[in-house]
Computed example of a mutant assay.
Amino acid sequence: MAKPHYEGYTTEKHTVLLRENFGSANVYAKNTQSILNQATGFINAYDFTLNPYRGCQYGCSYCYAAAFSPNSNMRQDWGNWVIIKQNAAELLQKELARWYPNNPDKLPRIYMSSVTDPYQPIESKEGLTRQLLEVMLEYAPILILVIQTRSPMITKDIDLLQRFKNLRINMSIPTGSEAVRKDFEPRSPSIKARLNAVQKIKQRIDPLKGYVPKLSITITPTLPTPLDEQEVFINQLKIADRVVIQEFHASSGRSLVASTREEALALKRKYAWWYDNEEKSYQQFKHKLASMLTDIQIMEGKEGFGYE
């Protein structure tokens, strides 16, 4: 199949038109060949990854997913474009229908999402993630779903989420400091808004009328939280049943590899008080988590992203 050329990001004749601008993002829409893709590497405990979109409007400085952009121009402009997989719901229906006759005794394990945020701003208009949830609800008792997001927008789908028997929601909150957040991920929602979203999910689901999902807060990658803010932040994490921490991905000069981006590496120099001895800072923070959150799972890296 010929490689697509996106309007605004190619010197060739474009084959994918710019559909619109949404905020600061160029929005494209195209069909995809598959929507359930084999899970590999860091999340190989799952059968499939499910990414409703390609690209992410949050454009976090450290995001490894930029490496998987369609071309180098789009990689450099990470955060300013998003591709809607417009046939995603139809494909998901077909692919799940094919799975079950061939795997009658196995629950498919689905991770949504690995290289995008399913609740990035465009979701407020498109509702594509909601459509996918509606498709999966046909199989809700017999599938396992993990949703990874940093967006409070997930609360708009509580009516659907409470119908999944096997669901874990991972809310990404890499730091307890708003100043640090604004440096590393300035387009993302506030820490307070994310914590409130987790609390809202817990409070609004009546366990007698629906399923309360498992709730994780993923401090990944673990960004600096100043010492005078750590205690307040850690106490706020008690709303979850699991906290996951993880250091930065290793750096790499290669373009198609999951690694920490130059933008984040440059920011690390601003926080020398943490990064001059990163391993010590990380270990001290981990110890404080364990000492203050005695009734909550504290997990690291790959292990923490499992469903159980």
Rank of each mutant, 00 (worst) to 15 (best):
Y9K: 10
D276M: 12
N37H: 01
L167W: 09
S252E: 09
T294C: 09
I84S: 10
E262W: 05
Q236T: 05
P101K: 05
L289H: 13
K238F: 07
T155R: 00
Y53N: 11
L265V: 03
D105Y: 15
P224C: 08
K238N: 14
R168E: 09
E123H: 06
G8E: 07
Y139C: 08
K125W: 01
Y119F: 11
G176P: 08
I144T: 15
L50V: 07
P141V: 01
P4Y: 00
P213V: 06
G23M: 10
Q162R: 03
T15R: 01
Q76I: 00
D159I: 04
S69M: 03
K270V: 00
D77E: 03
L215F: 11
Y62S: 11
L237P: 12
I296R: 08
I35E: 10
G59I: 12
R187Q: 12
E123Y: 01
C63P: 06
R261Q: 14
K165R: 14
M292H: 15
R54H: 07
A2D: 08
P70H: 02
Y282Q: 04
L160P: 13
S114Y: 01
R19H: 07
I110F: 04
T116R: 05
L18D: 13
K85E: 08
F184K: 06
V27F: 03
V243S: 14
N235V: 02
K182V: 00
P52K: 13
S172T: 14
H287G: 01
T260A: 01
I142G: 00
F233I: 07
W274Q: 07
D183K: 10
I217K: 06
W81E: 05
E229P: 04
L256R: 15
N71Y: 00
A140M: 05
N80A: 00
N26G: 00
V243M: 12
P207F: 08
I169F: 07
M299N: 10
E20S: 15
I245M: 11
K30E: 15
E126F: 00
D295Q: 13
G79H: 11
I147D: 02
K268R: 15
E95L: 07
A240F: 03
Q120S: 13
A250Y: 04
P174Y: 04
T175S: 06
I122V: 08
I110E: 13
V232D: 15
